[in-house]
């Protein structure tokens, strides 16, 4: 077992344990903080995959924006933050079924990969970031998805604005 495997097991353990705390924490802000630990663990996994850009983006977007949004939502929508509400509602059997199905689907897909430790690592080009940029702008590749991403995000913004206006 080499160092990267140890780091992988540590971060996987961090992800699983903190994910468990996310669903079991009684205090909603604690749940959000545990979620941040989970997301940080995912960033470490990206580093192990030599995707440094994605790791940093994971921290910037998920911890810097989405987690903060969650905490704001929790703090601003609940009248009483200490309320120890029940952690489940009447739909829990359905949720259990859906989760079990997703797990089965992931297991089914993963079975086909044939994981092996002997497989050689794909070389990561040193200018991978620049290549990503090239791929995003070249017409043969992803320029249309690149522009559509902007439209999609603006659509999300318009939706958020609409919801926020109705609330007011």
């Amino acid at each position: 077992m080499d160092a990267s495997q140890i780091i992988f097991f540590l971060s996987a353990a961090l992800i699983l344990v903190s994910a468990l705390f996310v669903v079991t924490a009684r205090n909603l802000v604690h749940a959000a903080l545990w979620l941040i630990a989970t997301l940080f663990g995912v960033a470490v996994l990206y580093v192990l995959l030599e995707a440094g850009f994605l790791a940093v983006v994971q921290v910037v977007v998920y911890i810097g924006a989405i987690a903060i949004l969650f905490i704001f939502a929790v703090m601003l929508t609940r009248r009483d933050l200490l309320s120890q509400s029940s952690q489940t509602n009447a739909n829990w059997p359905v949720a259990l079924g859906v989760s079990a199905l997703s797990l089965a689907a992931i297991a089914f897909i993963a079975r086909g990969f044939g994981f092996s430790l002997d497989r050689p690592l794909a070389p990561v080009p040193t200018d991978s970031l620049e290549r990503l940029g090239q791929a995003l702008v070249s017409p043969q590749q992803f320029v249309l998805p690149f522009e559509v991403a902007s439209v999609l995000l603006v659509a999300a913004l318009v939706g958020a604005v609409y919801v926020a206006m109705n609330k007011k």
């Binding site: 924006a65 704001f72 902007s150 603006v154 958020a160």
Partner: peptide, 14 residues
């Protein structure tokens, strides 16, 4: 405050 966080999130991703 929540509205500003929402708008920020969209721009952050962009």
């Amino acid at each position: 405050y929540y509205v500003f966080a929402l708008v920020f999130l969209i721009f952050d991703v962009e």
